[in-house]
């Protein structure tokens, strides 16, 4: 067995850790056993399928069109996921599509335009996955935070609207706060890079036998891309979302968890 290979036996051995999680869930009566098993099996099947498909797509003889289609699929799935997490926001799918699409476009423009990586199937799909995957998480955080903060903060927003402020000004403190909440984890991750954790791409490369310095360079380029992608997605998602939560005549729409009083 080579240094980076795991093999099916190794994979089976790693399931011991799942058994640890199951034991903890049982002992503490968390009732997460079913979810744990489902997530492990689902993750296993999904990744095996993805691995097989990736092997085809990144083959140098396969047309790049398939890689681009895969990237498009990632962006669409990310948009659908964001939409599912905040159904109260009208048109959120399209906002998510624009936000994650913009992240992919900006990320690819920098990555390939500046020659950081070559345009190949083996770079396109994994980079899109990392970029959009991280950006999507921040997009979800910013949408959920915005909806909750606007519902709870309705009195302040309406006090501002009543002063004649447009929706953009009336919502600005809440949008800023939501953006800070969504961006902070990624900024903290970047700060703690190499000290608290060794990130995925680098770990994978080192395990696969790549020189650690080369692995670090790849990881740094990816981390900066992810940071930019997260910032792009959260900004586009936040601005798109908040626009949809106000009417054209500058009224805050009805939101779940609203605490407004009426006489």
């Amino acid at each position: 067995m080579e240094s980076g290979d795991v093999g099916y036996l190794g994979l089976a051995a790693s399931l011991v850790l799942v058994a640890v999680a199951l034991t903890i869930s049982r002992r503490l009566r968390l009732r997460l056993e079913r979810d744990l098993v489902v997530s492990v099996v689902r993750g296993l099947v999904q990744l095996l399928v993805v691995g097989a498909a990736l092997a085809i797509v990144i083959d140098p003889d396969t047309s790049l069109v398939w890689s681009w289609l895969w990237v498009a699929g990632i962006v669409v799935f990310a948009a659908a996921t964001v939409k599912r997490r905040a159904p109260a926001v009208p048109g959120l799918f399209w906002i998510g599509l624009a936000a994650n699409g913009a992240t992919a476009v900006v990320g690819f423009a920098v990555t390939f335009g500046l020659g950081i990586f070559p345009v190949e199937g083996r770079t396109l799909v994994p980079i899109a996955g990392m970029l959009v995957g991280n950006a999507m998480k921040s997009g979800i955080v910013v949408v959920e935070r915005l909806v909750e903060a606007l519902a709870d903060g309705r009195p302040e927003v309406e006090a501002r609207l009543a002063l004649g402020q447009p929706w953009s000004a009336a919502s600005r403190p809440i949008v800023r706060s939501a953006l800070r909440v969504a961006l902070s984890p990624q900024i903290e991750n970047t700060k703690a890079l190499g000290i608290v954790f060794l990130p995925g791409a680098m770990t994978g490369l080192v395990l696969a036998g790549v020189d650690p310095v080369d692995a670090v360079l790849v990881q740094l380029a990816l981390m900066y891309l992810i940071l930019g992608g997260v910032a792009t997605t959260t900004a586009v998602t936040a601005l798109g979302t908040v626009r949809r939560l106000f009417t054209a005549d500058h009224r805050l729409v009805s939101l779940p968890r609203s605490t407004r009083d009426t006489g």
Partner: peptide, 20 residues
């Protein structure tokens, strides 16, 4: 124009809402 209208018609709410 709603913004113009609200500039003319001010409102004080049930609970005082001060800004930061």
């Amino acid at each position: 124009d709603p913004l113009e209208l609200r500039g003319e018609v001010a409102m004080v709410f049930q609970r005082p809402v001060t800004f930061a």
